[in-house]
């Protein structure tokens, strides 16, 4: 059983996901906006957050960064209908890698119950530090990013590592 925060502005998705996770035996809170999510995270230490990539007013990933400031141990799953498309472009991915705000998992909508359960189980069981290479790999695989983009991202990553002060 995990303490899970669901953030999605679509009421039907929010409530159905909540019910699905309740059925799986988790403790679930829901938020309709980034602001509501931050307010909840201030009161409660969640094990995991399921966040819609597209939120009104604040991007899901920016919310994730804010939530990490409150709770560095929290795992995260980003769900999105846009994952195979332009919103998650290479520039975005690069930014995420640079700013280390990548989510632990990216799942495309419509995500199935079993897939979600599997991801939650893996993340909450495994714990430990984030596997950046895997995340990048996952993201790249889902996105069908071109090889040359991966190389340039890799170089950016290495450069940043060499100069940790920056």
């Amino acid at each position: 059983m995990a303490k899970i925060l669901v953030v999605d502005d679509e009421p039907d998705i929010r409530t159905t996901l909540r019910d699905a996770l309740l059925l799986q035996g988790h403790e679930v809170d829901v938020a309709e906006s980034a602001q509501a999510a931050i307010a909840l995270a201030k009161q409660k230490a969640f094990d995991l957050a399921v966040i819609d990539y597209v939120l009104p007013g604040m991007r899901g990933l920016d919310l994730l960064r804010e939530l990490h400031k409150l709770n560095g141990f929290m795992k995260s799953i980003i769900i999105s209908g846009q994952i195979d498309h332009d919103a998650l472009n290479t520039g975005d991915l690069e930014r995420q890698l640079k700013e280390r705000i990548a989510a632990d998992r990216y799942l495309p909508k419509p995500v199935s119950g079993p897939d979600l359960a599997k991801a939650i189980d893996e993340l909450c069981e495994k714990g430990g530090p984030v596997d950046w290479k895997k995340i990048a790999g996952d993201a790249i695989a889902t996105q069908k990013v071109k090889l040359k983009d991966v190389r340039s991202m890799d170089q950016t990553l290495k450069k940043n590592r060499k100069k940790p002060s920056q």
Partner: peptide, 23 residues
Amino acid sequence: LSLAHELRQPLQAIRTASENIAG
């Protein structure tokens, strides 16, 4: 293209709701 994303929203709700019914 835009519709593809848009359609995934109700599909998500339908998928989870139907799974919930089974539950």
